[in-house]
């Protein structure tokens, strides 16, 4: 099963799950330095600014979550739980199990919580952390711009996960793409 969409902070810092806090700090500082040097090297456009802010927020959050054993364990446990729920729901949906809807609801609620906590909140909290601020120069202006970007990022991750799950809100669509092309052409031609 794909784990795409369930943000993996170990991957972001190029570490494995057994990494020690020292490794977390070392990789974070190196990667943040590289990122800052890249930012200084290129001309900043709107699109690049958004991308760099997101990259910076991800590194900060990865450091913030993984450097503390307790926070790291909670994060990793909650991530595993939500991934397992996805798997259980898929299986129940496939078998037409009566518990399908309850599992779907439980999964949706846990997924929303996981993404809010570890994508949006953790990234913003990390931006106020003393060590992260020192390494990344993150300030109030960064936070102001990043709020929108992080909200979109969270929304995209949520959508990315939902897109691969069984249809539950609507019946499975049968899309005829040849018909779609014709419909679009007719609409552009001004058909009412």
């Amino acid at each position: 099963m794909s784990e795409d969409g369930y943000v993996n902070y170990f991957e972001i810092l190029a570490l494995d799950e057994s990494a020690k806090p020292g490794d977390v700090r070392k990789n974070y500082k190196k990667m943040m330095k590289d990122l800052i040097m890249e930012i200084a090297r290129v001309e900043i456009t709107g699109e690049r600014r958004d991308r760099f802010l997101l990259e910076m927020a991800k590194l900060n959050a990865a450091f913030y979550v993984l450097r503390d054993n307790e926070v790291r364990e909670t994060y990793w446990r909650q991530r595993a739980e939500v991934i397992q729920l996805e798997s259980q729901w898929r299986e129940a949906a496939q078998n037409g199990d009566a518990a399908t809807d309850a599992l779907r609801r439980s999964f949706d609620s846990k997924l929303r919580h996981f993404l809010s906590r570890y994508v949006e909140e953790a990234m913003l909290e990390a931006g106020r952390d003393k060590e992260a601020v020192e390494a990344s120069n993150w300030d109030a202006a960064h936070e102001r711009h990043a709020s929108r970007i992080l909200r979109h990022y969270r929304h995209n991750l949520y959508q990315q996960i939902l897109d691969r799950l069984p249809y539950w809100e609507i019946t499975t669509p049968r899309i005829d793409w040849v018909e779609r092309e014709k419909a679009v052409a007719a609409m552009l031609a001004g058909e009412r």
Binding site: E169, I170, P173, M187, E191, R192
Partner: peptide
């Protein structure tokens, strides 16, 4: 007695009409 599933065919017609 559960959350409803919406019919996809009608939803597609609705979406196209909304665009129009």
């Amino acid at each position: 007695n559960r959350p409803p599933q919406l019919p996809a065919d009608l939803l597609l017609m609705l979406a196209d009409n909304a665009v129009r």
